[in-house]
């Protein structure tokens, strides 16, 4: 496998959300606004990068029998760092992500990469894997959030810049949004339809008539 494949597999072929179906709880929970999805994605990329680097570096030091507790200690440390830094320097994002930052610890996508990739590959490949998987996770999350926010609230919330308050309002939808999509049930619906869509694409690619 080439270096590029280490990176790119996480984007589409092994996308953590739509193909491996890992880390769904936070994905469903924070995908109500695009800005939350981006913040969560950035947090996951950072934690994944940190945990993959350290798991890869320490793979000969960590005893086989306690590898899962060791990974959790490493992951939890990076999550706590993200949480503290957000609280100190990006309080608005920290407030809107709330408890989900702390829940990155139990995001299976991260533990999964430590167990399935970083503990048997060198540091360079582990970094590429973390970047690919992290960006893939973020793309998936932003896609779900975009659908949910555009149809569920009629807005797209990104970062405020200058006179722009960070909220793009879509005429027509903002007054009469499909509210169910903004609620928890909507997250599952959107996720299900997107998963079906990606499955359909994959089948077409393989030449199967669906």
């Amino acid at each position: 496998m080439t270096a590029f494949q280490d990176f790119s597999k996480g984007l589409f072929k092994e996308n953590p959300i739509f193909v491996i179906l890992l880390g769904l709880c936070p994905a469903l929970a924070v995908s109500n606004q695009v800005v939350n999805a981006l913040g969560m994605g950035a947090g996951v990329i950072f934690v994944l990068l940190g945990s993959n680097i350290f798991v890869s570096l320490l793979k000969n030091f960590i005893p086989e029998k306690v590898r899962i507790p060791s990974y959790i200690v490493i992951i939890a440390s990076f999550v706590t760092i993200v949480d503290l830094v957000l609280q100190a320097y990006l309080p608005t994002l920290s407030d809107s992500l709330g408890v989900f930052v702390k829940l990155i610890v139990v995001n299976c996508a991260i533990l999964g990469r430590a167990e399935a990739f970083a503990n048997r590959n060198n540091i360079g490949r582990s970094i590429l894997d973390a970047l690919g998987m992290g960006i893939g996770f973020t793309l998936g999350l932003v896609l779900i959030a975009l659908v949910r926010e555009v149809f569920g609230a009629g807005t797209i919330t990104i970062f405020p810049m200058g006179s722009f308050d960070g909220v793009i309002r879509i005429p027509g939808l903002v007054d009469a949004p499909v509210m169910v999509l903004a609620l928890a049930a909507g997250a599952l619906l959107v996720m299900g339809y997107l998963k079906a869509f990606f499955n359909w694409l994959e089948m077409r690619r393989k030449g199967v008539r669906a």
């Binding site: 005893p63 029998k65 306690v66 060791s70 200690v73 490493i74 440390s77 503290l84 830094v85 609280q87």
Partner: peptide, 23 residues
């Protein structure tokens, strides 16, 4: 095994202490 896990946990605690003292 216990010693190695303790070393990892101690290193993590040290790093978090450093970050906490800044934030």
């Amino acid at each position: 095994i216990a010693l190695r896990l303790a070393v990892i946990a101690a290193a993590a605690a040290l790093a978090l202490g450093a970050v906490n003292s800044v934030t």
